[in-house]
Design a protein around this nucleic acid. Sequence first.
DNA 1: TTGAAATCCGAGTTATATGCTAGGAATTCA
DNA 2: TGAATTCCTAGCATATAACTCGGATTTCAA
Lengths: 151, 151
Amino acid sequence: MILSTKGRYGLKMMYELALKYGSGTMSLKEIAHKQQLSETYLEQLIAHVRKAGLVTSIRGAQGGYELSRKPGEITVGEIIRTLEGPLAPSECVLEDEPECTRAEYCVTRLIWEKIMDSINNVIDSITLQDMLNDYHKMKKNREGEKNDEHS
Amino acid sequence: MILSTKGRYGLKMMYELALKYGSGTMSLKEIAHKQQLSETYLEQLIAHVRKAGLVTSIRGAQGGYELSRKPGEITVGEIIRTLEGPLAPSECVLEDEPECTRAEYCVTRLIWEKIMDSINNVIDSITLQDMLNDYHKMKKNREGEKNDEHS
DNA sequence: TTGAAATCCGAGTTATATGCTAGGAATTCA
DNA sequence: TGAATTCCTAGCATATAACTCGGATTTCAA
């Protein structure tokens, strides 16, 4: 498995906030209930996301969270990297890592770089808005199917 | 980190065998020494690779391992999946997994599928032979640089 | 023929990461 | 004022990762 629950739950959480975007805040309790996840666990995850500036919070009763930018301006990559750290398949391809000290030419490193690039390419090109669009498309398709059944 | 040492060391190990391909067997001791890895640990890894049919072994003194196919016929994907299992970012996109039971349309699943496809696309398109070619290319480039220095 | 070099096998061990839970402080609205 | 909420730190149970160990088996070569 590539991702831990941090990234997986975190994205679901952010998607939930995207659905709500534009109409006020949403409490963690509500998010946890809608996605059937542990509220206290999500608490930890959203703390990171908030510190990264992706959501803003309002404390106190009737408080909650909301996206701090439009869904189209938040990528899946930002969310996942915030929660999981950089998605490198091996340490040696991380930015701050010193060059491989191996005497010979490190060929496997080229592989890790290609894998990393392709993952980043995918997650950086998808925004929360794309997910909302997918949702609407899927919904429409299913309703179409239903109508077919009855005809 | 996406890959554990199983996949990372395993690929290095197989690359070492690819370098040796065509000129007899290579002992684990030799592989471990060349790649600076624990021999006893590699023992476990190569057992899987052997059971998967990627290498064949010769027991006893002067024994060792060799690739059971040409380097061009063994992909990085086969090696990594043998050692790591399927590289799915989430359980729900695995073949044998039942459909998401979530009542609503699962939009995050689409993301995991795209990530998985892109990773598989990379690792299944690279063979050990490609790695050998990369090695020779890098070697040639470095020698070119050296000559430049002296000119 | 014997011993060294190797593969094979299963179990055990240690450290780290994962996936949470608990308790309580601080804030804010009704 | 109290209920609902975010915020913060710590702890904990389990699983996984990354090895190690002991020994059995096989085979070549001196």
